[in-house]
Simulated scan of single mutants.
Amino acid sequence: MARRSHEDRLNLSAGIASVSVALILIAAKLWALFQTGALSVAATLADSALDLAMSLGALAAITYAARPADDDHAFGHGSAEDLAALGQCLFILGSAALIGGAGAQRLANPAPTVPMSEGAGIAVMGLSIALTLALVAWQRHVARATGNRVVAADSLHYIGDLIPAIGAIGALWASRRFGLGWIDPVVAIGAALLMAHGALRIGRDAWDALMDRAVDAETVAGIEAIASGFPGVRGYHDLRTRRSGGRVFVNLHVELDGAQSLHEAHAIGAALKHAILARYPRADVIIHKDPV
């Protein structure tokens, strides 16, 4: 219990750190946007706003991860994560469209506007990269210590954010050094495309979960391999899977010797359930026992 409490505190610290960094970067990038007017900075600002939304979702998931199912939600509350992810997808797509459209309009201008106060923008982007690297280092430490997949996924998301931040620094530097105003809208359009790609991937996964789509073929094959070779199991059928939030729900019928006692049949089913959970610890497994 003490170890579990320690892991919960570590996970919570990672979630709070993620939200705190996102808030700091949003404030800094808003200031940099007013100082520079650079679309590349606007792109990273929108990305930080997405970071805040996703970090809040991750913090909520960490906080409520241990909450058991109740009478009204027999399968838990994981679908709220998928609904939030779907909303985030629409938000990201809208932001990407606005940034990409503004970038294309500025690029079509025969004399694109060169960003102002590039030094301030570069300083803020440098701060963004430093804070992001520090956050990722802590998140990876927590993920290794606790095995929390929400923290690990949030860490990967922040690693992806480094690309537009570095691109914004390059665009601002080129604008200041060579007066190349067209680099800023090009970087903004590239960042918008990356945001749209990520949004579509998040939205697709959330939609699949809400529509009770089966989990990936590799996981299904892994469950089948465990069941087919398990001692006492003569066969299996009607394997059904779905995902809700970070949990995988598994429903499986196994065929057992009908002449054995109920106690023996229960022991086989319980052992099979534990074997599946050992390989997929975030699964929720229901096993039905049928006589051969």
Rank of each mutant, 00 (worst) to 15 (best):
F75A: 13
L98P: 00
L45N: 06
A32C: 01
M116N: 12
A60L: 14
A53G: 13
A120G: 05
G229Q: 02
Q35K: 11
F34K: 08
L39P: 03
A188I: 02
L56C: 15
I24N: 05
A97V: 12
V114M: 13
V19D: 10
V292K: 13
V248H: 14
A283T: 10
G203S: 06
Q35T: 10
R176T: 12
A275G: 03
R213L: 12
V21F: 05
S40N: 06
G203R: 07
R106T: 13
M1N: 13
D161H: 05
L45T: 00
G198S: 14
G76K: 12
D8E: 14
V285I: 04
K273S: 11
V215A: 11
A61V: 09
D205L: 13
A97Q: 05
V114E: 12
G87Q: 04
G147M: 05
G229T: 01
P68E: 06
S261G: 14
F75N: 12
R140Y: 04
A168F: 03
L93G: 04
K29R: 03
D71C: 06
F91S: 10
T241C: 02
G147N: 09
S5E: 15
L277R: 10
C89E: 13
A143Q: 10
A217K: 13
H266E: 06
W138P: 00
E255H: 12
A27Q: 12
V124H: 04
R140G: 00
A137S: 06
S48M: 06
T36H: 07
I129F: 03
V21Q: 07
R149S: 14
L194Y: 12
S13C: 05
I159M: 11
P112N: 05
L180P: 01
L93E: 08
I129M: 07
G57L: 15
D70M: 02
A53S: 11
A104N: 02
A225G: 05
G119F: 07
T146A: 01
A137G: 05
A168Y: 04
A265C: 09
N251P: 00
A61T: 15
F230M: 03
A66V: 11
Q139H: 04
A28N: 00
I163G: 05
N109T: 09
A17Q: 09
K289D: 03
S95W: 02
R201D: 14
A134E: 02
A174N: 12
S128G: 15
R242N: 10
G76H: 10
R4P: 09
A152K: 15
A2M: 15
K289W: 01
R140K: 08
G258R: 09
L59V: 02
